[in-house]
Amino acid sequence: MSMDRRRFLGVAGLSALAIAAQSSLAALARGRQGAGAAEAPAATRWAMVIDPKQCLKDEGCTDCMAACDKAHNVPHFPESAHEVKWIWKEHFDKAFPEQGSLYTAEAFRDRPILVLCNHCDNPPCVRVCPTKATWKREDGVVMMDWHRCIGCKYCIVSCPYGSRSFNFFDPRPRIKELSPDFPTRTIGVVEKCNFCEERLAKGQRPACVEACREKALVFGNLYDPASEVRELLRTRYTIRRKPELGTNPEIYYLV
């Protein structure tokens, strides 16, 4: 079969396209690795391991939530529509919808599981924020700047874990006991768990971790091979919430 000029050009063009596509894909793949490598030198990556079995020893216990509320001036709205939640209990089949088979999860089904912001490695909320009012710190804490938030609520829409709350009303009158060392929020901004970054700065562990009598919450540095969290991840089987979404949550649950 002879090849006329038009056909030759067509084939040549297609091959060029294919080569270009291949090299750009390779560049993309490299770019991803590159980004990971650039983050590696950071010495710290905070993470948490939750042991539901320990937590469920006393189902009515609210110590960790109370400690968090007090430390961060979290307001209490009685109506569920306007609730503000940093760390709270969710039914197992809501926290892990994909694990909700009728029999396998019998031990946990309908029982409360502690949930909080996952401080994702690839947080969708950070991607969508139009003002950089939320961002991921080098040590993995997904931070918020309440001075800058315009209250568009796009981060709430993008969060697959329901970890973000909006201040539908002025929160201050709804705070039981004001802690002067931490600000309250103003009306119309979004808020969420900050991994107690104000305590981390002082070398303390998060308030919820410290408040737990059953030691069900373990907090530590993922980049330190000797840390307690790494020890648990090495020796026990853990699951994370909705890992299939590629957000890479840094809150692990022991099975």
């Binding site: 938030c149 209250g151 909006f166």
Partner: peptide, 14 residues
């Protein structure tokens, strides 16, 4: 729809 409409220019500032 904004909770803090007075800050809307933050979208352009940042």
């Amino acid at each position: 729809n904004l909770g803090q409409p007075m800050r809307v220019l933050n979208v352009i500032l940042y």
